[in-house]
Nucleic acid binder design. Sequence first.
DNA 1: ATTCCACAGGAAACGCTGGAGT
DNA 2: ACTCCAGCGTTTCCTGTGGAAT
Length: 497
Amino acid sequence: MTDENTQPTDDGVDVSPDRNFDNVDLDDVVFDDDEDDDQGLFDDLLSGEPIFENKEVLRPSYTPHELPHRKDQINNMATILVAALRGETPSNILIYGKTGTGKTASAKFVSKELESTSQKYDVPCNVEYINCEVTDTQYRVLAQLANKFIENNQEFVDDRLEELTTLREGASSDPSRLADTAFESTEAIDARIEELEDDREEMESVPMTGWPTDRVYNTFFEAVDYEERVVVIMLDEIDKLVEKSGDDTLYNLSRMNSELENSRVSIIGISNDLKFTDFLDPRVKSSLGEEEIVFPPYDANQLRDILQHRAEVAFKADALSDDVIPLCAAFAAQEHGDARRALDLLRTAGELAERDQAEGVNEKHVRKAQEKIELDRVVEVVRTLPTQSKLVLFSIISLEKNGVHNVNTGEVYNIYKRLCEEIDADVLTQRRVTDLISELDMLGIVNAVVVSKGRYGRTKEISLSVPIDETEAVLMSDSRLGDIESVQPFVQARFDN
DNA sequence: ATTCCACAGGAAACGCTGGAGT
DNA sequence: ACTCCAGCGTTTCCTGTGGAAT
């Protein structure tokens, strides 16, 4: 155990008057067969008053029961989908909205309601959700759908078989029971059972790879058409699917209705990109976009409501000081009204407060959380940069570290060239490096402005807009950049010229 | 007013990869 | 197994340009 762990014992003394019995109990258990003065690794963290009541509700994966400020959109969807409960085909729906505007949450909410209502009234209706960012090819989408329905049908058949078997047993001892069934004889039941068993056997699930696409399509088609029902297919991030594998999938799905005999399908597409339909075949476009619902970004007030709702469940009473929620809302509203971001901010602020063993979350924690999230983002972006971009960025950092501010393209390129030779990487042309710098600019890692220096030409003035040491650390952790000895000689050379 | 620096950034073409069609 | 094609990162070649210096 390090000093850091034993040191907070006086902290423990400070806190102890507030401790409730739960904590005391817990401590006793933990220390049961341990020396009393040695604080365990988790004890400090457990000993403080917990701030969270239920952290899960702040995670993006959580679907709330109530979506404030989305009543219109939800009602709209419900009005369209209610057709499914009448056994009719609902219009296809396209949902637009930027990230964190509640599209997915609303759609999932509606579909859950739809499914439960359909069970209540015994109307066969299924909703299948597919995230196209994960399932991003036609094959995978169809395979996933096919397997879902095959599974579904197997259950359906199993149920029927069970019913029939009991009926068969009953009928063999007492034939009069057949009177009010569809069967005239035990033989008829046997025939039906056999038929179903054959069906059951044919329901072979689709492998994740290997089949021709049309075979997968046919399997899916038959699986859907096996029983009478309305099927709603929800395609989240549908723009990703179109981007990666074209509109064939959507075309196939949207024309299915004309060939299905027993069932009906309806598609709900969810998209971040408002103009992704531009790339679609006009036929697909018109059939898919029968109904369009737009989710506008939340404003600061709406975000505040949302946070308030969730905070009540997520945090212990009085764990938040008054300015926390408005501040989170304000920060997130600046970022295009992204509710996910707002919740993230609130959760991170809570976690930071917890780590500090503070009694509650205050404004300071929110600001720290904002910084942390931003840093995490930068670290992630920098870490996943291509090697060449990393080299360019590294050149900029080296210059900046040596006190050169507002670097220009030529200087960066010189350092970059030497770096490439050092680690034996391909040297790109200056033209290309110019573009890489512009990309870094767009990612918000550097700030590049074109300025004219009169006689001394026209160039980009580049300055770093992220914390220098952290960024450098991330770059150095790259296996290829790791073995750069020192940048000093390169930068020094610049002054010699 | 003219010159001229040190690039910006457009256009086209090239080489490579990986998927679709045959 | 084969070709064909599209998309991407890149190179080559190029024209354009704001303003200090002349």
